[in-house]
Every structure is written in structure tokens, then in C-alpha cells.
Amino acid sequence: MTAEHWDARYDDPRYLFGERPNDFLVEAEVMIPRRSREDGGRVLVLADGEGRNGVWLAKRGHRVTTVDFSAVAVGKALALAQRAGVTIEAHVADLADFVDSDAASGEWDALVLIFVHLPEGLRRTVAHALSPRLSERGVMILEGFTPAQVSMGTGGPSDESLLYTRERVLADWPELHLDVRLTERRVFEGPGHRGLSSVVQVLGRRRPS
């Protein structure tokens, strides 16, 4: 799907996936290392859409960079951050270009991918570029739909190749030690994701050197 397609979907006063953070992210956030008691971690949120996850992480004290290829979504993310009284660094970019940019460089305490459904080649490109940039105690947090989601009709792509299996996750992120869980749960995230859903939930860490 193109940026223009998502611009059209996001061009609504309502937030397509709501303003609340993803439930799995809320559960996993405690795993993100903090730089100090006052300062959270440096966090990169990929394909963050209208910013619900990035803004919530900023409210938790993290230094957040978000990226999405929809300019409309990024504008809404910045508006959401302003209403919440926090600051995020937000970029309009294709992930294929962003992962090699200065904005994606440096060491990250968390990589967050919530319902980021990409073609296989781009999935591998993103994972290969960003895995080495996790800090020593950093964590990768991922939730996405599985192929079983297609028949449920409660959100997500209809193209099975864009969905996650355990084998695909393991192949995408070979440099990380992964905890992969397949489950069904009820998702209520705005009008875009509503109802019983089949998901994969992943926590990743750097392998010991």
C-alpha cells in the first residue's frame, strides 16, 4: 500500500487505531532499560502511524523517535504529542530509506514494531539494519497479525505474505535471542482493529557476545 493510500485512510478527525497504546507494548514497556531514574531509554517506533504508541512511550519518560510514510499520520502524531504535553521526534519517510538515515543511527534501547506489516524483503532489510543498533540491554518489541487473522476479519492485511509466523520472525531477526508467542486476544484499537485477533508477540534481545 502506498503513502497516498494511508494518507487517505488517516485523513479523518478520528484516530484510525485510537489514541491508546497497544496492550502488548504496555505490558512489555517495563523491559525497556532506562538511562537513569529520571531519563528513559532511547526508543525507535517504526511505522507509528498517528503516534499513539510513541506518544505513550514519551509520557513514560522515554526519548522517542517515530517514523511513518504517511505525512497525514505524522501530523496527527505531533498534534497528539502536543495535547499530551510531551515531545517526540517524528519523521515522514519510507522505512527502506529511513533505516540508513542519520535519524536511525546510534544506539537504541528499544525497537518497537506494532502491527508493522511489510513485504519480506523490506522486513529483512529493516531487521538487518537495526538489530546491531540495540544497546546491550535493549529490547525489540513486536506484535503483528498471523495468517489466521485473514479469516477473522478484524483488521490487518489480507495478503498472507505480509503476516507473521514464528518461522518468519526467527528468519527476520537471527541476530537476536527471541521469545515468540502465538496467541489469540481481543484487540480494541479504534475503528481499525476491533475484535478477536490472531497475533504473534515477540520480545528480542541481543545475543551474548
Rank of each mutant, 00 (worst) to 15 (best):
H117V: 01
H117L: 02
L118K: 11
P119C: 06
P119W: 04
E120G: 12
E120P: 07
E120Y: 03
G121Y: 05
G121Q: 14
G121W: 08
R123F: 03
R124N: 07
T125Y: 00
T125F: 00
T125N: 05
V126T: 07
V126D: 06
V126P: 05
A127K: 07
H128M: 08
A129I: 01
A129C: 07
A129T: 01
A129F: 04
L130A: 12
L130F: 11
L130T: 11
L130Q: 10
L130K: 08
S131V: 03
S131Q: 14
S131T: 11
P132E: 12
P132Y: 14
P132L: 13
R133T: 09
L134C: 06
S135A: 14
R137D: 15
R137G: 10
R137V: 03
G138R: 01
V139W: 07
V139F: 06
I141G: 05
L142R: 06
L142Y: 04
L142Q: 09
E143H: 10
G144V: 02
G144L: 02
G144F: 01
F145T: 00
F145P: 00
T146L: 06
P147F: 06
A148N: 12
Q149L: 10
Q149V: 12
V150I: 15
V150P: 04
V150H: 02
S151D: 14
S151V: 08
M152H: 10
M152F: 12
G153N: 05
G153Q: 04
T154P: 06
T154E: 08
G155Q: 10
G155D: 11
G155C: 10
G155P: 11
P157Q: 08
P157N: 07
P157C: 07
S158R: 15
S158A: 14
S158C: 04
D159I: 01
D159Y: 00
E160H: 07
S161I: 02
S161G: 03
L162A: 08
L162R: 11
Y164G: 00
Y164V: 00
Y164C: 01
T165W: 00
T165E: 01
T165V: 02
T165I: 01
T165D: 01
R166P: 01
E167A: 15
E167F: 03
R168G: 09
R168T: 07
V169G: 02
V169N: 04
V169D: 02
L170F: 03
L170H: 09
A171G: 10
A171R: 11
A171H: 07
D172E: 15
D172K: 09
W173P: 11
P174R: 13
P174K: 13
P174Y: 13
E175G: 14
L176F: 05
L176T: 09
L176V: 10
H177L: 14
H177N: 13
H177Q: 15
H177W: 10
L178I: 09
V180W: 00
V180E: 00
R181D: 09
L182V: 15
T183L: 15
T183F: 04
T183D: 12
T183M: 11
T183Q: 14
E184N: 12
E184T: 13
E184A: 08
E184G: 06
R185S: 08
